[in-house]
Each structure stands twice: as structure tokens, then as C-alpha cells.
């Protein structure tokens, strides 16, 4: 997924000399090819993210199309005010890439983990928030971002977990995408980002379940969400982000707004920082976001709500 992004970046920059890449001294090796092919469109702004966002605003104001790359722990979190005032208030066409979202930097600890970025950005007017689940969605998201002419944040999580789509995705702004559909749906799994891969695996164990991926967190097609959840018994939302202010909250808000009465099980980071160090898989377990922990949570939730759900016979 990261290579897809790097390749698209080169393609975009070679097609349009107004496309410029700014990085806050991150992306070692990722941009080697870009630097080679488009050296005049590459700017390492140094470890100075606040200034980098302001500079991107100035470049956008003078007709350029900046793409700003950073780790999502810094872009957007460290520069939230610059995003609000310098970019979004003026609706400037700047694409922000937040890499390593969630707990990807499992061994580096809290400073490099990012599980509140969606929540922090959602309240800012004019921002578009995209969160691709795989390379196909990344491609579609990047295209949407380029066409949008406003400030876009692309959240890039764990990038090497495999694909959820076996074909290129045709994405319209706000749309959610079916990944697994059944004629009758009791459980709707709605996920965003890399965790959609886990959602698919979990869903395969439940009969009458469907899985939807949400690459557009803002804006989001509320009517489509309502159609998807309307005749089901329960929703499970999944995200590698806090259970507060992210996808779980978005779906709950929509269900509430349209008076769709059904239980919503929100799977995500349960309002805690990481305590331990370890590999990605280990950190997922710590946050109970590994397959087994998620399944346990879901089944406990079903029990709590007296939901009778049938499993696929093994």
C-alpha cells in the first residue's frame, strides 16, 4: 500500500509540475525514486512540522498542489491548529498523508502511535478524511484526494496485511464499499483501514454476515449506511483507532440520527495508551484487537444483548 502511494505520487508529479512533495524528514527510502525523477518537486522541510503545514498553505495559495507526508502521530496530531487555520479555514487543496496510523510503530511506544487522529480532525470543517484498507483503496483514495480541491487527510495504517479487494476499486466520495455480501444479513461488520482484513476473517465464521469497508470517513454517505444496516440485527464496527470519535462513533451517530434501533459493538482502542513494547501482533493482542480477542468481545456483546447468531458450520 505504501509503494502504491509512492508510485502514484511519482505519476502525479510527472504529470503536473505543480504537484510538490513535502516531508518532515520522514519516509526514508520511500521517496528515493521520487527524488530521482522529480528532484525539483521534493522538499524535506526538516523536523519542523508546524512550519511545513504553513509552507504547504503558502504553496497552495500560489497555485501549487502540495502533498505533505508525515507520520500520523505528527501529521495531523502535532499540527492540528495549522491544519485548522492555515489549510481548512481557507479550504486549500493540500493532501496530508499520515503514515503508520494506529499502533504500527508498536515497538517505539506512545509518541509514534496514533489512535486519536480521526477524532481530532473530524470536528474541523472542510477536511476530508480518507482511510484506505488496501492498495486498491489507496489508489482510489489518492485519486479522490487529487480531484477534491480541498484539504484531505489520508490515514495510512499497517500496509502489508494483504488485500481486501481483488479488483480495482471505483470509489465515489463518501461511499462505503462492500467486501463480503450475503443475501440475508444479520451481522454487519463495518471497518476502516487495515483492520478490514481481520473483519473479513472474523465474518467468515458467522452466517448471514456482511463486511463493508469505509475508506471515506468524512464525508460519508449516511443514506448508504442506513440502507446497509437497516435490516440487520447487530452492527460491529472495527478500527485501529480509539473507540471515541472514530468510525464507531460515526456509525452510532448515523444510526441514532436515522432512528435505526439496533445494538452497535464498537471495536477499537479502548481509551488506553500502550503499556508494553513488542511487535505489531503483540500490540494488537495488548489492545485486544487480534482476531481471538475481537471474537470474544463480539460474542460477549451478543450474549449481553441476547442475540442469537448462527455460525458457519465448520
Amino acid at each position: 500500500m505504501r509503494n502504491t502511494f509512492a508510485n502514484y505520487l511519482i505519476e502525479a508529479a510527472r504529470l503536473d509540475e505543480k504537484v510538490v512533495l513535502l516531508t518532515g524528514d520522514h519516509g526514508y527510502a520511500l521517496f528515493d525514486e521520487f527524488r530521482k525523477l522529480c528532484p525539483n518537486q521534493y522538499f524535506n522541510a526538516g523536523i519542523a512540522e508546524q512550519n511545513m503545514i504553513g509552507v504547504s498553505a503558502g504553496l497552495a495559495k500560489t497555485g501549487f498542489k502540495p502533498i505533505v507526508y508525515g507520520l500520523s502521530a505528527f501529521i495531523p496530531i502535532r499540527v492540528l491548529e495549522q491544519i485548522k487555520i492555515d489549510l481548512c479555514y481557507e479550504n486549500l487543496p493540500v493532501i496530508l498523508i499520515g503514515d503508520g496510523a494506529g499502533i504500527v510503530y508498536s515497538a517505539l511506544g506512545t509518541s509514534h502511535q496514533s489512535t486519536e487522529d480521526i477524532a481530532a480532525l473530524r470536528g474541523i470543517p472542510n477536511i476530508i478524511i480518507l482511510s484506505p484498507a488496501d492498495a486498491s483503496e489507496m489508489r482510489a483514495c489518492f485519486k479522490l484526494a487529487q480531484e477534491s480541491e480541498q484539504t484531505v487527510y489520508i490515514r495510512v495504517g499497517k500496509a502489508d496485511l494483504g488485500s481486501v479487494h481483488d479488483m480495482p476499486v471505483d470509489l465515489k466520495m463518501g461511499q462505503i464499499i462492500p467486501v463480503k455480501k450475503e443475501a440475508k444479513t444479520d451481522i454487519v461488520f463495518i471497518g476502516t483501514g487495515s483492520i478490514v482484513v481481520s473483519a473479513l476473517e472474523i465474518a467468515s465464521k458467522y452466517s448471514n454476515s456482511s463486511v463493508w469497508s469505509v475508506p471515506c470517513l468524512k464525508p460519508i454517505d449516511k443514506k448508504q449506511i442506513v440502507e446497509v444496516i437497516l435490516n440487520s440485527k447487530v452492527i460491529v464496527t472495527l478500527e485501529e483507532h480509539s473507540i471515541y470519535g472514530g468510525l464507531g462513533s460515526i456509525i452510532s451517530e448515523i444510526a441514532s440520527e436515522f432512528n435505526v434501533k439496533l445494538p452497535i459493538c464498537t471495536i477499537g482502542i479502548n481509551d488506553k495508551f500502550s503499556t508494553y513494547c513488542g511487535n505489531y501482533k503483540y500490540l494488537l493482542e495488548e489492545h485486544e484487537l487480534d482476531i481471538l480477542s475481537i471474537e470474544k468481545k463480539i460474542n460477549d456483546f451478543f450474549l449481553l444483548h441476547n442475540l442469537v447468531i448462527s455460525f458457519v458450520s465448520q
Binding site: 504553513g54 509552507v55 498553505a57 503558502g58 504553496l59 500560489t62 492555515d86
Partner: peptide, 16 residues
């Protein structure tokens, strides 16, 4: 905030 945006505009003007 303003100085950084101005710096970006100066860079933009220079690039053009």
C-alpha cells in the same frame, strides 16, 4: 502561523 505561510508563498513565487 503567518510567517510559515509567507515562507511557502515565497517558495511558490521562486519556483514559478
Amino acid at each position: 502561523h503567518g510567517l510559515s505561510v509567507g515562507v511557502g508563498m515565497a517558495l511558490g513565487a521562486k519556483l514559478k
